[in-house]
Write a protein that binds this DNA or RNA. Structure first.
Length: 1076
RNA sequence: GCCCGGGUGGUGGAAUGGUAGACACGAGGGACUUAAAAUCCCUUGGCCCGUAAGGGCUGUGCGGGUUCAAGUCCCGCCCCGGGCACCA
C-alpha cells in the first residue's frame, strides 16, 4: 500500500483496474490451466509445433514409435532409453505403460532429474545455495541425487527460441545472452564400441599409439612425425611396397614402441621391420640392445639393408609377407595372452562387448587424435564397464566427484581429476583400443555426458592427458604438442588418414560423411539449454493440478481449477522429507466424482508447487482482460492488444523470465490460443538507480591495567565499541602493515581512549595496554549527509539501541567530521543505502524528481543516485511556470504573482523555438531518449525567457508569455511533468462550468516544418578540416556559388596567402572545407 | 578464456562521418540585498601569445590506417562494466 502510494505520488498513470496478482487464485487458475495444456501437448519436430497429446496417441495406434520419429524426445533423458514399439505393441501395453511412455513426450513432464538434495532440510537447493558441499544456510550436507521432478520441455523450442531473436527489437546484450544460454553447437555423435579388456601387461603393446613409453612419448612424437614426412629413399620405396592390407600385417611406419622409433611395424603380428644404412660397430651394439628389448615385449625384429631394399625390393617384400604369415595374430580375446577373466559381475556385459559409448563432438575432424574417452561421473555406463578389480577405486572417485555441486566444479576449473575405468573402446576408423576414463571436467547434463578426448586439439583434454601421462599424437600440421592443444580452426590436418591436408572447415563434413557411411556416427545439433525444473519443494507457489493413480500422473479436470493451496499445520517439509503440501492429509482427489474428497481417501495430489516464474510467464496476457472468468483472456482482448509494444525490464532476467516468457508464448500460439509467437516486440533494459553504501570503521580495544599504585591488578577489560578510525587505518590494521601515518593516528586514538578510561576510573595510575582490532560497519545512508559526513549523534543513538557500551569517538588530530567511505552498489534494504523518494518529493515535488531521473542520462544506464544536479531541473520548472505569470514575485518562493498570458500572435522566432522543440521532443520520445528531451525543454524555456524579457509587457497587460506558444509546450511537457502541466492547463482553460478537460486528453501538438525554415545558413569554413571562421549565405545558394563567394572573401584570401586552394568541398547547409 | 556493451571537461552527460563538449551540476566573478536565501548576468577542456580586441597550438583510453574531413568507419592493443563458462 505504501508502495502504491509512492507510485501515485510520482504520478505514474497505471490503470489499476488491470492490476493482477499471480498469487490470487483467480489468476493462478489460468496458470494451472496453461500447465494442463502443456501436460496435454507434445512436440512435433517435423512441423516445429506443439500439438495435442491425442494426436500422438492416434499416431502410436497407427504406426507405433521409433527413435528416428519426428516426435523425438528432448530434455532430461530417463535412465532407460525408450525402446521402439509398433502399433500392435502399443495397443498391448497396459494403461500404466502407455501413460509412462506418453510422459516422455509431454511438454510438462515428470522425470528423474539431478538435484542438490539436502536431507537435513528436506528440500532441494539451487546451485547458489550450496557451498563446499553443504547448504549455505545451516551448513547441512548436500548430495547430488536423482529425484522425480516436474520439468518443462523448453528444449523442444530451442531452435525457435534462437531464430526468433533475429526478429526482435531487443538489446543486443540480452539477445546475445539468450543465444549463449541456448548454446547451439553443430557437430556429430560418434559411437565407440566397448572392447573386452586386455590384460594390464599387454595393454600398452596392444594399443596402437600406446606402445610408447608414456614418459618419453611426447618427446619422440615430433621426431616420428618428422621421419615419416622425410623418409630415406629406401624407407620410402619399401613403404610403397608393403603399405595397405595386402601383406596381411597392416603395417605402420615410424612407430614408437617403448623408447624406440621403429621403421615399420605390424602391430597385429608384432613384427618389426628395420631398414638400416651403413652399419658401424657402435650402431650394432645399440641395435642389439634394441632388438633384445623389443623381443622382450613380444616383437620379432627383422632387418634389411638399404641396398637390399633398393636393389631387390620385391624380394624384401616377399620375405616380409613370409615372416608375417608365420606369426600368430595377436588379439586380446586370445586366452593364451589374456589370462584375466572377469567372472560374474558388472564387468560381464562389457566383456561381451555389447555396450556402446556415444560421444558428442564439434570437432569430428580430430577423430584420429582420440587417445582416450572420458565419461562424466554421472554416466550410467561406468558401473557396467568397470572391471571388478578397478571397481572400488572408480566408484570412490565417482561418489566424490558427483557430490561436488556444479558450482564447485566450475570454480575449481584448473584442478584436474579423474580415474581410469579399466575399460577400452574401439576407435571407429583405426580399430585401435582407446582407454575409457572418468573425469569431472565432463558434465553429465551436456551432450551425451561423454567426450572423445583429443589432447592435440582440445586444451581440456590436453590438460587431462598431460596430468595422467596419457600419450597422444598431433593431428594438425606443424604443431608442437608439448606446449598445448591446437584449437585453431585454420589448421591443416595431419596424421589423420583420409583427412590429411584438409582444412578444419572442410574436414568436419568429410569426417561426418565417413562416420555415417560406417554407421558409427551422425551429424547432430546439440543445445546447451536444459529443460526447466518446474517443481518446488515449497509451500508458497501455485499447486500443480495433477493427481496420481497407480503412481502415474493424471491431469485434474479444468473444473477442479483453481486448485487452491490446502491448509497445513506447518510450512516446513515433513519428517520424511516430503514437501510441505504432504502435510495436508485430507487433500485427495476422487477421480470418479471429479472432485476433492476432503478426506484422507482418494488419489494423492502432487505435493510440489510451481516456481516463481510460472505466473510471470504469461501475465502480460492477463493485463488485456484481467477479470475474465471463462478464459485466460478473451480472443477479442488479445486481438485488440496483441504483443507488448515496449517491455521495460531488468537485464537480470535475460536468461530466466525472458526466455520462459517467450517459450510459453510460442506454446500458446502453437495451440491456437493466441496468434503471435513473441510476447514483446521491443525490450529496453532500464538501468538501475544504484545506491551508495556508506561505511564507518570502528576500533575495538581491550584495555588492561598492570595494577600499579594500588589500583586493582586488572582495572578493566572492557571493549569500547564506537571508536571511529579512518578506512586507511582499518585496512592497515587488517593486513598488518605499519605505515607511520597510520601509526600516528592509532597512537592518537589510543591516547584519547586512555584519557577516557582514566576519567572513568579516577585515581588510577597504572599503565594501560591495548588489544586492537578493527571492524567495518555499514552505516545507514539516512544519517550521512551529501558529502559523506556522518551524523555522530544519530550514529551513537543507533549504536546505543544495540545495547552496547557507548563511548565518545576519538579522531585523529585536526579531524572534525567523520567521512564515511562510499561504495556504489545495488540499492537494497539490507545494505542500508536506500534513498526514499518521499524526501525529494517533499522538498522539490514529484515533477522535479521525475524530470531529474530522466535527465540523469540514457535510460539503459545504471548509476548511483546522486541529488547533486537536482537543483537544475527544479529551477527549470520554476522558470517554466514563471513564463505564465507576471513579473512581480513572491519574495519567499521566488514564484511569480498572478497568471496571465497574452493572446497575441507569436513571432517567427517564437514559433521556431516552439516547433523545433516539438520536433526534437517527439523524436526523442520515440528513441526513449528522455534526457535530451528534457534538455530541449530547458533550451526552449531559456530562449523564450530571453525573447520575452526583452519585450516585457505584451500589449501592456503585464503578460510575458503567449498562449499560442505556451499551450502546445504545456501539452508536450505533460508526460514529463504531469502535475505542473495539468495545473498550467487548468489555468489556461479555466473551468467554465462544463466538464473538466485534462491536459492528458488534449491533442498532441504536431511540429510543422514551415516554421523551421531558415533564410540563411552560417557555414563553418574550415581549412584542412580545421574550422577557422563562419560565413553566412542564403539558403538555396548552389554549391558553385557558395564556393565562389567563399573564395572571394578577403579573409579567406588572406589565409590562402594568394595561393589557389587544392580543392574546395561544399556540403550544402553543413560545411565548407578548403584544402590548401 | 569466450560473447556483448563502454572509455568524451572537476561531475552527470550531448553530438545522422561535417563547428567536440549541447543541456545541467559544480566552481569562479559580478548585480540586487543591511545580510542571507532566492533570482539574474558573465567566465569555465588544457596550454600558449596579446594591455586589449583577438589569435595560435592541443584535445574524445593508447598506437596505426581510410577520408577533403574521424569521438563516430577499419586494424592492433589497454582498461572498465555486464553476461556465459571444463558446453566437448
Amino acid at each position: 500500500a505504501r508502495y502504491r502510494e509512492q507510485l501515485d505520488n510520482i504520478g505514474f498513470s497505471f490503470d489499476w483496474s488491470r492490476e493482477v496478482r499471480t498469487s490470487d487464485p483467480a489468476y493462478y487458475k489460468w496458470t494451472q490451466w496453461i500447465f494442463l495444456q502443456l501436460f496435454d501437448s507434445w512436440y512435433d519436430h517435423a512441423a516445429q509445433k506443439s500439438r495435442p497429446i491425442n494426436e500422438l496417441i492416434e499416431r502410436f495406434e497407427k504406426q507405433g514409435w521409433s527413435s528416428n520419429d519426428d516426435c523425438a524426445i528432448t530434455g532430461n533423458e530417463e535412465l532407460d532409453p525408450l525402446t521402439a514399439f509398433n502399433q500392435d505393441e502399443w495397443k498391448a501395453f497396459s494403461e500404466k505403460q502407455q501413460q509412462q511412455i506418453l510422459l516422455r513426450f509431454r511438454l510438462a513432464y515428470l522425470s528423474e532429474a539431478w538435484v542438490n538434495w539436502c536431507p537435513a532440510l528436506g528440500t532441494v537447493l539451487a546451485n547458489d545455495e550450496v557451498k563446499d558441499g553443504v547448504s549455505e544456510r545451516g551448513g547441512h550436507p548436500v548430495e547430488r541425487k536423482r529425484m522425480p521432478q516436474w520439468s518443462m520441455r523448453i528444449t523442444a523450442f530451442a531452435q525457435r527460441l534462437l531464430d526468433g531473436l533475429d526478429q526482435l527489437d531487443w538489446s543486443e546484450s540480452i539477445k546475445e545472452a539468450q543465444r549463449n544460454w541456448i548454446g547451439r553447437s553443430e557437430g556429430a555423435i560418434i559411437r565407440f564400441a566397448l572392447t573386452p579388456n586386455p590384460s594390464p601387461q599387454e595393454r600398452d603393446l596392444r594399443l596402437g599409439y600406446l606402445t610408447a613409453d608414456p614418459s618419453i612419448a611426447s618427446e619422440l612424437m615430433p621426431h616420428a612425425n618428422n621421419m615419416r614426412k622425410n623418409p630415406t629413399e629406401a624407407e620410402d620405396k619399401l613403404w610403397q611396397l608393403i603399405r595397405g592390407d595386402e601383406t596381411g600385417g597392416r603395417i605402420r611406419r615410424q612407430h614408437i614402441i617403448d623408447r624406440f622409433i621403429v621403421d615399420f611395424v605390424s602391430l597385429p603380428k608384432r613384427l618389426v621391420i628395420e631398414v638400416d644404412g651403413d652399419i658401424h660397430d657402435l650402431q650394432k651394439e645399440e641395435d642389439a640392445a634394441r632388438t633384445e628389448r623389443l623381443n622382450e615385449l613380444g616383437f620379432e625384429v627383422i632387418r634389411f639393408s638399404n641396398d637390399e631394399v633398393l636393389k631387390n625390393g620385391l624380394e624384401v617384400r616377399r620375405q616380409i609377407i613370409a615372416a608375417l604369415s608365420k606369426r600368430e595374430e595377436f588379439v586380446a580375446s586370445d586366452e593364451a595372452h589374456s589370462p584375466l577373466s572377469f567372472g560374474e559381475g558388472p564387468g560381464v556385459r562389457a566383456h561381451s562387448g555389447g555396450e556402446v559409448i556415444e560421444v558428442f563432438t564439434t570437432r569430428p575432424d580430430t577423430i584420429f587424435g582420440v587417445s582416450f574417452v572420458t565419461l562424466a561421473p554421472e554416466h550410467e555406463l561406468i558401473q557396467k564397464i568397470t572391471p571388478p578389480e578397478r571397481m572400488e577405486e572408480v566408484m570412490a572417485y565417482v561418489t566424490q566427484a558427483k557430490n561436488r555441486s556444479e558450482r564447485e566444479r566450475m570454480t575449481e576449473v584448473k584442478r584436474v581429476s579423474g580415474v581410469f575405468t579399466g575399460a577400452y573402446v574401439k576407435h571407429p576408423f583405426t580399430h585401435i583400443d582407446v582407454p575409457v576414463w572418468v573425469g569431472d571436467y565432463v558434465l553429465g547434463g551436456y551432450g551425451t555426458g561423454a567426450v572423445m578426448a583429443v589432447p592435440a586439439g582440445d586444451q581440456r583434454d590436453w590438460n587431462f592427458a598431460t596430468h595422467f601421462n596419457i600419450p597422444f599424437v598431433p593431428v594438425t600440421e606443424n604443431w608442437d604438442i608439448s606446449k598445448g592443444a591446437d584449437e585453431s580452426k585454420e589448421a591443416t590436418l595431419a596424421n589423420s588418414a583420409f583427412l590429411n591436408g584438409m582444412k578444419v572447415a572442410d574436414a568436419i563434413p568429410r569426417a561426418i560423411d565417413e562416420l555415417e557411411a560406417k554407421c558409427v556416427g551422425e551429424r547432430r545439433i546439440n543445445f546447451r539449454l536444459r529443460d526447466a525444473a518446474f517443481g518446488r519443494q515449497r509451500y508458497w507457489g501455485e499447486p500443480i493440478p495433477i493427481y496420481y493413480k497407480d503412481d502415474v500422473p493424471y491431469a485434474l479436470p479444468e473444473s477442479a481449477l483453481p486448485l487452491v493451496l490446502p491448509e497445513v499445520d506447518k510450512f516446513q517439509p515433513t519428517e520424511t522429507g516430503e514437501p510441505p503440501l504432504a502435510r495436508a492429509t485430507k487433500w485427495r482427489w476422487d477421480a470418479a466424482d471429479q472432485q476433492l474428497t476432503g478426506s484422507a481417501i482418494g488419489h494423492p495430489i502432487e505435493t510440489t508447487t510451481m516456481p516463481g516464474w510460472a505466473g510471470s510467464s504469461w501475465y502480460f496476457l492477463r493485463y488485456m482482460d484481467p477479470q475474465n472468468e471463462g478464459r485466460f483472456a478473451s480472443p477479442e482482448a488479445i486481438n485488440y492488444w496483441q504483443q507488448v509494444d515496449l517491455y521495460v525490464g531488468g537485464s537480470e532476467h535475460a536468461t530466466g523470465h525472458l526466455l520462459y516468457f517467450r517459450f510459453w508464448t510460442k506454446f500458446l500460439k502453437d495451440r491456437g490460443w493466441i496468434d503471435f509467437d513473441e510476447p514483446a516486440k521491443k525490450l529496453v533494459n532500464q538501468g538501475m538507480i544504484q545506491g551508495v553504501g556508506r561505511f564507518a570503521y570502528e576500533l575495538l580495544i581491550g584495555i588492561q591495567s598492570d595494577g600499579r599504585d594500588g589500583s586493582p591488578p586488572v582495572l578493566a577489560l572492557e571493549w569500547i565499541p564506537y571508536v571511529l578510525i579512518s578506512r586507511e587505518l582499518h585496512l592497515s590494521l587488517k593486513d598488518g602493515s605499519t605505515d607511520p601515518k597510520h601509526l600516528e593516528e592509532l597512537q592518537y586514538t589510543l591516547d584519547q581512549i586512555g584519557d577516557l578510561i582514566r576519567d572513568a576510573h579516577p585515581g588510577h595510575q597504572g599503565r594501560i595496554t591495548y588489544r586492537k582490532a578493527s571492524l567495518e560497519r555499514r552505516v545507514d545512508v539516512s544519517i550521512v549527509d551529501g558529502r559523506g559526513v556522518l551524523d555522530l549523534a544519530k550514529y551513537a543513538e543507533a549504536r546505543n539501541q544495540e545495547k552496547k557500551t557507548l563511548q565518545n569517538g576519538a579522531f585523529a588530530p585536526g579531524v572534525v567530521d567523520y567521512f564515511c567511505h562510499p561504495e556504489v552498489e545495488k540499492m537494497s534494504k539490507s545494505k542500508l543505502n536506500v534513498v526514499n523518494p518521499d524526501d525529494i518529493i517533499e522538498k522539490y515535488g514529484a515533477d522535479t524528481l521525475r524530470l531529474y531521473e530522466m535527465f540523469l542520462g540514457p535510460i539503459e544506464q545504471s548509476k548511483p543516485w546522486d541529488t547533486n544536479g537536482i537543483e537544475g531541473t527544479s529551477r527549470f520548472l520554476k522558470k517554466f511556470w514563471n513564463l505564465f505569470h507576471t513579473e512581480s514575485r513572491n519574495q519567499e518562493s521566488g514564484i511569480s504573482g498572478s497568471f496571465i498570458v497574452s493572446e497575441e500572435a507569436p513571432s517567427k522566432a517564437e514559433l521556431k523555438v516552439l516547433h523545433s522543440t516539438l520536433k526534437k521532443v517527439q523524436e526523442d520520445i520515440e528513441k526513449l531518449s528522455f534526457n535530451t528531451s528534457v534538455s530541449q525543454f530547458m533550451i526552449a524555456c531559456n530562449a523564450l525567457q530571453e525573447l520575452w524579457s526583452n519585450a516585457p509587457s505584451q500589449s501592456g497587460s503585464g503578460a510575458r508569455g503567449k498562449r499560442q506558444v505556451l499551450e502546445p509546450l504545456t501539452i508536450a511537457l505533460a508526460p514529463f511533468a504531469p502535475h505542473i502541466a495539468e495545473e498550467l492547463w487548468s489555468l489556461l482553460h479555466p473551468d467554465t462550468g462544463k466538464e473538466f478537460h485534462s491536459v492528458t486528453t488534449a491533442q498532441w501538438p504536431k511540429w510543422e516544418a514551415q516554421f523551421l525554415v531558415e533564410d540563411s545558413f552560417s557555414y563553418p569554413i574550415s581549412f584542412n578540416g580545421k574550422t577557422r571562421m563562419q560565413l553566412e549565405f542564403p539558403i538555396g545558394l548552389s554549391k558553385e556559388e557558395v564556393e565562389a563567394q567563399v573564395l572571394a572573401n578577403p579573409e579567406v584570401q588572406q589565409r590562402l596567402e594568394g595561393k589557389p586552394p587544392k580543392k574546395v568541398i561544399v556540403v550544402p547547409e553543413r560545411i565548407v572545407n578548403i584544402v590548401v
